[in-house]
Structures are given as C-alpha cells and as structure tokens.
Design a protein around this nucleic acid. Structure first.
Length: 864
RNA sequence: GCCGAGGUGGCGGAAUCGGUAGACGCGCUAGCUUCAGGAGCUAGUGUCCGCAAGGGCGUAUGGGUUCAAAUCCCUUCCUCGGUACCA
C-alpha cells in the first residue's frame, strides 16, 4: 500500500534551497481511491454490534432523500459527521455509523408525471448514483446496514406498526381538510402557487376540501413530549417544540344559543378559553367558519352573506387566516348566544381567525383583553367592555376608552364590572368562576394544546400502502399480519394527472374482505413519509430481520442514539414525530427507551450561491464531483468544515477552497521534506531571532500541544472551523522551523505526528498516506492512522512563563506589559503606573479607580 | 402574522466567561524564486487623519446598564428556517 521506494529515499540534510523535484507532489486523485479501497477491504468500519469490550457510540446523520441532485449540501451535512465518527473511534468507542435512503416521497411522483419514468426506477437510479458519490467522501458509513425505505422489506414494518397503533387506539380515521384541485386532487403546499392559490399543473383555483383520513394520536403524548429531561438538545429546538405543542391551561365553557325568530335556542356552544376570568367582558362569540353549528344557527336573512364568507375562508391558508396584520373579516349569523355567567345575550359571528382545529373551534370574544378580539370589535363596532384593571389604576378609577387590549394577567390585577367577582385577583377569579360554573355543569377546567393529531394519510402512489380493507359488511378491516406486506403495485398508470393511480387500479383495489370474504376495497391512501423516518434508526440495527421491525436485544444495547446530526428545519416535524414514535413503541413493548436521540446537533444549511435552497430546478446546484476531481475529497471535506461554524450554513461559494488545498500541500511538504528551504524567505534555515535550538524545540512542543488541547476540545464541540484554523496555525509555526537545525529532530517529529493524528478524522486520506510513509521510512509495520489512539496533551509543554497584560485608560488600551505568570496585582499596578506612556497620558491626574480583571487586564479610570 | 436562528473588514469568518475586535483563510499589494503554474515562499493589508510617532472612528439601527459591551437589556430594520401534503 505504501510506496516502497520511500525507504530508499536519500537521507536529507540542511542542504540549502529545496530541489522541488525531490519530493513527490501531493496528488489526491491517486491517493484517495486507493485508501478507500483498502479501508473497505480491511472492513475497518464494519461495526461488530455484539462487541461490548468498548463503549458503544451510535452516531446518526439524517438519511438523505434521493432527489437525484446530490450536491455540496450533502457533503456539508455528512463529512463533518464522518469526522466525528473517526474521532470517536480514535477515542476508544465502538462506533456505529449507518446510512440509508428516505426513498418514498412526492418528488419521485413529480418526476414520473413529468418525465414519464416510474417513481421506483427514478428513485433507484438516484440511489445508485448517490451511493457512488457518498463513497467518494471517504466516509466510514456502514453500508452493510443500509436501509431503503421504499423496499417492501422496510415498509412492511411501517404497515405492521400501523396495525399495532390501530389496535392500541393510536390510529383512527377522521375528516380533515386538504388543499384540493378539481383536476389533480390533493395538493401539497408547494404545489399551490401564487397569492391566488392556483394548482401548479393546471392553474385551477385551489380550495379546501374535507376528506376522511387516517391520524396518529400524537396528542396523547403531548405532555410527555414537553419533557426534555435526560436529553441534550439545543435550546431553540426545545423551544420550538414546546411552542408547537402549545399547552395552555384554561376552561371549556358552555354557552347556549338564545331563542330567536327561527330557532328555539338551547344549542350548546362550547368555547375554550385561557381567560375564564374575563367572562363578563365577553361581548360576542366567534365560531370558525367550518364550525358544525354554523349552518343551523344562521338566520335566513344572513344566509347568503354567511355562505359567501365561508367560501372565501376555504380558499385561505391558515397562515393567512392567523395573520394579525391584515384587517379582520367576519360575518354575523343573525343569532345570539347566552353567556352562562350572567345570562346576557351576545351576538354570534363567524371569522376566519378562529380555526376549527384548535380548541373547540369557537371562542368567546373579550375585546378589552385580547388583541385580535379588540381589532375585530373595532372593525365591526362591537362593544368593548373592560373587566380587568391593573392594580396601579385602581378599581374605582373613572372609565376611559381603552386604546388597546390589556392582556396581561398578573396577580395584582383586579376584576371590575364582573358582578360578585369584582375586586378579585385574576388567579382567584379564574378559580372561583370556573368552580361556580362547574357546579352548574357549564364549565370545566381543561388543558388545550395547539398541536393536532398527526394526519398520516396521503392521496399519493409513492408511499407505504395503509393496510386496511373497507368492507360493506365489516367496515374498516385491518389486513392480517400474515398478509403483510401489502405491496405497492408496480404496473400502474400515471394518467398525467396528479391523482393517485391506486384509485383506479382494480388489481390493487378489489380484494376480498379479510374477515367475511365478501367483496372489499383496499385503502388507497399511503402513509406520510415521516413515518418511515420516525423509526429508521432502529431498523439500521437489524435491517434484514424478518421477525419484527426491531431486534429488541440489539436495540436495548444500542439505543438511544448517542449523537444525531441534521437540519433544524426538522424541529417540529421529524424530530417531534420520532420522539412520539419512540414513546409509542415503548408503550407497545417493542423498545425500552422513551427518547430516540440523546444528543442532537443541528448543522446549518448550504444554500445556492443565489441564497436560495439548492435544487436542480433553480439551477443553483454545486456538484461535489467536480470539486473532488480538482482538489480531492480531503480538500473538499476540510473546506466545508473551515467555511464557518457548522451550525450556520449559508450561501455556497467556493472562494477560499484553494487556501485549504494549500494547507494540505504544506502538511505534505512538512512531513516529507523537513529539511527543505524555500527561496523567497530571507530567513530560511535560520532559527527565529533570539532562539537557540533548545528554545526552538520548546516552542515547537508548546505550539503542538497547545494545538492539541484546542483541537481536542473543538472536535468534542463540533467547532470544526476553528479546529482547522488551529491546524493551519500549527503548520505555519512548523514552517518557520523548516530547514533549521531543529527540523527533523524529536520535537519536530512529535509535532508532525500530532499534526497528522489531529488531521486524520477530517482529512482521512492524506493523513493516512503521510502516516504510512512515515512508518515506512522508519521501517515500522503499517497500521492505519484511523486505528490509532487520540493523543494526550502534555501539560508541562504548554505551561506559560509570562503573560502579556493590556493596560487601559478609561477602557481604551494604551499600553501593554509582559510580566511573569503569577505576578501579584499590586506589582502589576505599580508597573503599569510607571510606564512612561501611561504617565504621559495621565498628565498628573490621579487614577480615581484601578480595575484588575483577574490578572488579565488593568483598567485605570480617571475622571474629567 | 406567529415560532426559531442570524446580521462583525472587499469576502468567508474569529473573539461564546462582559475584559487587547478582526485569529485562520480568501482577495489585494510588494518582494523573492523559476521543472513559467490556476505553482511555491516571505512580508503588509478594518477605516479616516498623519512622513512617522500616534490619534479619531468602528461589530445592522437607535437608546440603556457597566470601570469596561460584538457579547447583557429595550427599539427599529434586514436575511434565513418552520408554519402541519417538500424532505
């Protein structure tokens, strides 16, 4: 593997300017494939899951969607993760680092319709190409554990899990609105274009349509999902999940419809409120336009206006509906409701800012104490009645028109205009009003959540078929476990419409009912692909197990995942669904752990040079193959780590990649040609001013071990950009000693060895090559650099003898002094005040105050 | 709109414990060198004033706290991610 002629290389000496032909040039294209093949051959990264001699480390990177445009963004996500894998191995861990493909999904169907290629063919072709590209990274993925979610071997277990969920009451069917195009059926949000909301294919106007669909009961776990105990996740993700779940304590209060011209009244209208203390301020009721009672409560003379309003509301997105910066809209139904707290009649409206999916789909409006209700009341001239007053104002203060809603609810606020509850504090009022209404059976304390159950149905072909059959006799009948998988039919007809071809595929559709044997019809909806990604890390551990989705014994040993890396864009969907799944699987007795990922890191996203997300259609994709061909994988890996903080991402620009390549060239030169000298350096071959060989060696050791200290921490905390910068600094420092008397000596040698070891996880090929050449040059037997132990810092090498201390006057640095470490503050102060520059600048003004920042800095404060 | 993140030289970024702003790299400038290459090496490079010494200014914006603020608090503006059928 290593070049045998290395042993015969002529001994070098301080022989003057380099003959650059003497050492081979760094040629990554020759080195990299050779080592990749060798690592494969040796099975260096095949993890023995049964090995318990070392601590386990399950490293997971979010598996890619095989979109066919593997771009530099995939490298940005995966090569630093590979560096983590290699670094953990050097630190003695048994590392499992698998890879797979999230192979179901919408883009494959888009390609099918557009290019007349089958989704499966398109997907598999893309996977083939991506496998090759992923291998070119030199990453240590364990390919033998690969998972492809579109294979029946994988998705049959989606179906199996679905059946378990159904049995456990975690799966159910209900109506839910979808974006609907009359020609192309259900549309994803990205298929609805423009402010007019038209279909991407036929430009028809899109509207909401209610369909019977399948749900998973994630809300059952809402409270447990709010608890992040025992997992080390970034604060922003925890905050986003917490807000997404949106727990709020409040009460459900029952209003009833008032008798009117057309109706006897007495219909129950349930509202959810977090502010039952403001019930006396409720001056109207607002229902979601989709609310079940709207039709019944609408008076004849309001019917046409109400219908028109509902129609336009069904063309809005929720984002539009919830936007608070557009004018409020709504319609009165021409009916009243009765407030249970005081028997008052208040008008009932519908408005799109009330959503049917949150709470009860109806609210009591308290314009004085809710911003949206306030805006609505202003818009339509409805009464605004103040019922909470801040303590400072006092409950007897004269009334004045509110300029804005007063929404705070501190314990010092008091109720006004609230009958016998006047003067109570907000918390007391909440308790008492709810208690009183509860005794009449018209209220109960309850908890509301913003999160909704997970709609898993997709009216799509390219996904996991939902394993149920509809039977006219037996209703919804689960497919028996023994009949799994329900295979996705391969021969289907894409009619050039967005409608799922399963809907018209009779070979698929027409099946006997598993229960009665009579004619049945298969479910044609497939599953959300987030189901695939909600448990795939378990499958990696036993990818071919035909007895169950998870091998419990292996899973118990290897999960939770120790480190998960992926994008923050998954904060509230994939990362929340995965937590839900883990808890549900644990309750089903399939796994033991209740959290999937012990530690999470969100790397940033690489955008196109135009600042947009990279995609083929935008034409802003950077192909990594080109860069690899030109610079080699190591340079690309290192450049991506060097670009900036890993959690930041940003627009792609190859500017600066040459600098990283130059750095690797310098490491190459330092390792193979310690004694060479460069013309152009006037000091070549001479030790730095004032350094004898002993001092020079000490300086080299200090530089190497300080770098090791910094780099070790930076690998641990994934600060790869500064890690690379520190390695560059060390290389620069060593370059100053190249060609001098200490070059090639013991300190130099140690520094080179450390440099290569530190570089190994990030730039695995060149470090392996140079490592092999070093071993060969000393006649030592080869062993991979990636099997070496991570080096240990020699504390004695890095100890400081002196320290530079900046001297500030009024916070501005005016001078610096260098003192022995441990110099007492009083002595530093004296030295500082004696400096001629300081004396001059003080100009006789006595210091008013002198601040010592722990011996790191002196600040002399003078006034006037 | 709402939730989350971010804004520092010509550019990517460093300083993450409130304590020397600009590490490291790109680019640029000058010099050296010549297996003349998209090569290598050395030095300089925030900005304004200045021959220099040195000084003024400076971390999106405006304010505040502090001996001291890129860092903490408040205002405003801009960019990115998510917003439940993209993954």
């Amino acid at each position: 593997m290593t070049d045998s002629e290395q042993g015969q290389r002529e001994p070098t000496g301080p022989t003057g300017p380099t003959d650059r032909a003497r050492i081979e040039r760094y040629d990554p294209t020759a080195i990299e494939p050779r080592w990749q093949a060798r690592w494969d051959e040796l099975g260096l990264y095949e993890t023995d899951l049964a090995d318990t001699s070392r601590p386990k480390f399950y490293l997971l990177t979010m598996y890619p969607y095989p979109s066919g445009d593997l771009h530099i963004g995939h490298w940005y996500i995966k090569t630093p993760t590979d560096a983590i894998a290699r670094h953990r191995r050097m630190n003695g861990f048994n590392v499992f680092y698998p890879i797979g493909f999230d192979a179901f999904g919408l883009p494959a169907e888009g390609a099918a319709i557009k290019h007349n290629i089958h989704p499966a063919a398109w997907t598999m072709k893309n996977i083939e190409n991506m496998r090759r590209q992923l291998r070119s990274m030199g990453a240590t993925f364990q390919w033998s554990a690969e998972v492809v979610t579109a294979s029946p071997e994988y998705y049959r277990w989606n179906q199996w899990i679905f059946l378990k969920f159904l049995e456990a009451g975690l799966a159910y069917r209900a109506k839910a609105p979808v974006d609907w195009c009359p020609n192309d059926g259900t549309l994803a949000r990205e298929q609805v274009v423009g402010v007019e909301r038209r279909c991407w294919r036929c430009a028809a106007l899109v509207e909401k349509r209610d369909l019977e669909q399948w749900f998973f009961r994630i809300t059952k776990y809402a409270d447990e999902l709010l608890d992040f105990g025992g997992i080390d996740w970034p604060e922003p993700i925890r905050v986003q999940q917490t807000n997404w779940i949106g727990r709020s304590e409040g009460a459900e209060v029952v209003f009833s419809s008032a008798p009117g011209k057309e109706l006897p009244g007495g219909d129950e209208i349930r509202v959810f409120t977090t502010r039952p203390d403001t019930l006396f301020g409720a001056t109207f009721l607002v229902l979601a336009p989709e609310h079940a009672l709207v039709d019944r409560l609408t008076a004849a003379d309001h019917r046409s206006a109400v219908d028109a309003y509902i129609a336009q509301a069904r063309r809005q997105t929720e984002i539009e509906r919830l936007s608070t910066d557009r004018p409020k809209t709504g319609e009165p139904l021409g009916a009243d409701a009765i407030n249970p707290v005081n028997g008052e009649r208040i008008p009932i409206w519908i408005a799109d800012y009330v959503l049917s999916g949150y709470g009860t789909g109806a609210i009591m409006a308290v314009p004085a104490h809710d911003e949206r209700d306030f805006a609505f009341a202003r818009q339509f001239g409805l009464e605004i009645r103040e019922v909470i007053r801040p303590a400072q104002v006092g409950t007897n203060a004269p009334e004045s028109a509110l300029a804005a809603a007063y929404v705070s609810k501190t314990a010092s606020d008091r109720l006004v205009h609230s009958g016998r509850y006047d003067g109570l504090s907000v918390p007391d009022a909440i308790r008492e009003i709810v208690a009183d209404l509860a005794t009449q059976g018209v209220a109960r304390a309850t908890v509301g959540y913003r999160i909704r159950d997970w709609l898993i149905s997709r009216q799509r072909y390219w996904g996991t078929p939902i394993p149920v059959v509809y039977c006219p006799t037996d209703g919804i009948v689960p497919v028996p476990e023994a009949d799994l998988p329900v295979l996705l039919p391969e021969q289907v007809d894409f009619k050039g419409s967005g409608e799922s071809p399963l809907k018209t595929d009779h070979a698929f559709l027409d099946v006997p009912c598993p229960r009665c044997g009579g004619p049945g019809r298969r479910e044609t909806d497939t599953m959300d692909t987030f189901i695939d990604s909600s448990w795939y890390w378990y499958r990696y551990l036993s990818p071919h197990d035909s007895a169950g989705p998870v091998d419990r014994a292996i899973a118990d040993r290897w999960t939770p995942v120790d480190q998960y890396t992926g994008g923050a864009e998954h904060a509230v969907m994939h990362l929340l669904y995965s937590r839900f799944f883990t808890k549900a699987l644990a309750d089903l007795g399939l796994v033991s752990e209740r959290e999937p990922f012990k530690r999470l890191f969100n790397q940033g996203q690489i955008l196109g040079s135009d600042g947009e997300r990279m995609s083929k259609s935008r034409g802003n994709v950077q192909d990594p193959d080109e860069l690899v061909a030109r610079y080699g994988a190591d340079t690309v890996r290192l450049f991506l780590m060097f670009m900036g903080p890993w959690d930041q991402g940003g627009p792609w620009s190859p500017t600066g990649i040459g600098g990283v390549h130059r750095f690797l060239n310098r490491v190459w030169t330092l390792t193979l040609d310690a004694h060479g000298r460069e013309p152009g350096d006037p000091d070549a071959g001479r030790l730095p001013e004032g350094e004898d060989p002993t001092a020079a060696e000490r300086a080299i050791r200090m530089a190497a071990h300080r770098t090791l200290r910094a780099v070790s921490e930076e690998y641990e905390s994934f600060r790869f950009n500064t890690m690379v910068a520190h390695l560059m600094e060390l290389a620069n420092a060593l370059f100053r000693y190249r060609g001098t008397d200490v070059a090639g000596g013991p300190a130099w040698d140690e520094a080179i060895q450390l440099l290569l070891l530190m570089l190994a996880p990030a730039a695995p090929h060149v470090s392996e090559e140079l490592w092999a050449r070093r071993l060969a040059s000393t006649g030592a037997a080869w062993s991979s650099i990636h099997s070496q132990a991570w080096p240990v810092v020699d504390a004695s090498a890095i100890a400081d003898e002196t320290r530079e201390i900046p001297i500030q006057i009024n916070g501005k640095v005016r001078d610096k002094i260098t003192v022995p470490v441990g110099t007492p503050e009083a002595a530093i102060e004296r030295l500082a005040l004696d400096r001629p520059r300081i004396v001059e600048l003080l100009a006789g003004r006595g210091p008013d105050r002198i601040i010592h920042a722990g011996g790191r800095l002196v600040n002399i404060v003078v006034r006037g």
